[in-house]
Design a protein around this nucleic acid. Structure first.
Length: 154
DNA sequence: CCCTGATTCGC
DNA sequence: GCGAATCAGG
């Protein structure tokens, strides 16, 4: 399907879906392109939604709002994600001896796998380094300054 | 954290 | 012209 980009047919679909009130995500999913592609094309066609999906710079409240740090937090998150692509993750570390909370011992790595409360939640269980609660790989992970426990294994 | 639309900028 | 990256907000 992805032969040519923005054939007249696709532009037609774009306009129709846009007129139908579909979100850019849905339009993109329907046509088979990325969301940014849809938005970019719409902007190029001067078809931006000038309605009120949200107002830019509407925050006129003094004091009660602290929406500044989130922006930087988002950027930092992406920066770390890029700066640490091949970093050792708990997914990379082979933990063949997963154990539950009650099966933990001094001989088992206490690194959590998956999110607490989740169905697959357990612990690494690998043999730890001397004096440390984690195995070699997870001890290294624990010391990573920027990477908190990104235990999301997918 | 997720999402949205809008703009920028390298290709 | 295209769209990923980024920005700006909910």
């Amino acid at each position: 399907m992805p032969d040519n980009t923005w054939t007249t047919e696709r532009i037609e679909l774009l306009k129709q879906h846009f007129a139908a009130g579909l979100s850019c995500r849905e339009i993109a999913n329907e046509i088979g392109v990325s969301r940014n592609a849809v938005i970019g094309k719409l902007s190029r066609l001067s078809l931006t939604r000038e309605k009120k999906p949200m107002c830019r710079r509407e925050n006129a409240k003094p004091g009660r709002s602290r929406s500044v740090p989130r922006l930087q937090y988002r950027i930092l998150r992406k920066l770390f994600a890029e700066a640490t692509p091949a970093e050792e993750s708990d997914d990379t570390i082979r933990s063949e001896q997963h154990c539950s909370l009650f099966e933990l011992s001094e001989e088992r790595c206490r690194w959590p796998i998956n999110h607490p409360g989740e169905e697959g939640f357990c612990f690494c269980g690998n043999p730890p380094l001397g004096g440390l609660p984690y195995c070699a790989g997870h001890s290294r992970l624990a010391y990573q300054p920027g990477s908190r426990q990104r235990a999301a294994r997918g």
